[in-house]
Design a protein around this nucleic acid. Structure first.
Lengths: 190, 190
DNA sequence: GTCTATAGCAGGATAGAC
DNA sequence: GTCTATCCTGCTATAGAC
């Protein structure tokens, strides 16, 4: 947090958006967290929406990069998906992108909503590609629909955050994920 | 909306909580939607948290009753779960209970959070019972873990809302659900 | 670029009249 | 039970000095 003000403002906004959502985050709170005054904030950004847009875009990019770390491997499809779902994460904080979906002011603003949509869409597409690889190599049954299965995987992760936050325990996320992985596993006939 | 004021206030709060969340809902907005004045609201309820608690409890009860409609049937386990997941719903509005999970002020208040936790927990437990029935009757492979699978089902639904809202289309919910159902289906070997 | 002053409006609630 | 008046604080910015 010792970079320039613009940078600190974006990072502070990212944290607050993650923690409290768009509606629950005020310019004043951002300024305090960033150690910047009002003059500074309004010099660098037109207002709260503009600053949020910069923050959301960065968060979205980071999520993609993080996902690609596990998904971009060379192992079997199932193994890469498993690694992605079980990788360490701040479960109780929720998904920094997915949570924006419940923010009415974000959904109402096409510009703010676009990066959210694109990111989740990218993730679904990426998983579908990997599932297709697994299909092509005979890893999965030919009856498996890559597109629908990919959606189910992303949904399970997103819903896992919901369950974990409701229960106040990260374990609820893992339980849901393991349930899905068992259904998907080539080693588990049922 | 022609009942007494207390009733109208609770219903208005339920709508606004669903639409804008707790942080995004002001007492003034509630009063306007309910057609009640401030005096009326503060006569019936101690304040915003008390009113929200009444609203959340009612919404939670309603969700359970609605779920039991499909889950309480007599058909095969898979059929009942399928009916529950595919029943008509206001997908784009999100889950009125699950969305509260992303509301920082709800999660920070033990009283407001309890009904959310209990409802999701009940749903998971109910689904686990049904899966166990299916296990006992030989409908599913013995390798299926009822508890984990139940968590995956709830998570897929919750995440389905996230995907649908991000995409701006209810179809995204159905896609995820169908992906899960295909994995769960006794008729689909893979 | 950053600071301080100022502004109008909304949030959340209390008090007392009716 | 409901209404109006009032209160203080916070939200989201604009203006102009430094």
């Amino acid at each position: 947090m010792s970079a320039n003000a613009s940078e600190r403002l974006i990072e502070a906004t990212r944290e607050l958006l993650w923690e409290r959502g768009y509606v629950g985050t005020s310019p004043k709170a951002i300024q305090q967290a960033a150690g910047a005054g009002q003059g500074s904030m309004y010099h660098h950004f037109a207002g709260k929406p503009a600053l949020a847009l910069a923050a959301i875009r960065r968060t979205a990019e980071e999520l993609r990069a993080a996902a690609e770390t596990e998904l971009g491997g060379t192992g079997p499809a199932y193994t890469r998906i498993e690694a992605y779902l079980l990788r360490e994460r701040d479960v109780l904080r929720g998904c920094p992108v997915g949570r924006l979906t419940m923010d009415p002011d974000v959904m109402a603003d096409a510009e703010l909503r676009a990066p959210v949509d694109e990111t989740l869409d990218w993730l679904r597409g990426r998983l579908a590609e990997i599932l297709q690889e697994g299909l092509d190599s005979g890893e999965f049954s030919p009856s498996l629909d890559a597109r629908e299965t990919a959606a189910a995987i992303v949904a399970t992760a997103q819903g896992g955050y919901v369950l974990a936050r409701a229960a106040g325990s990260p374990a609820a996320f893992d339980t849901a994920v393991r349930g899905l992985l068992a259904l998907l596993s080539p080693r588990t006939a049922h």
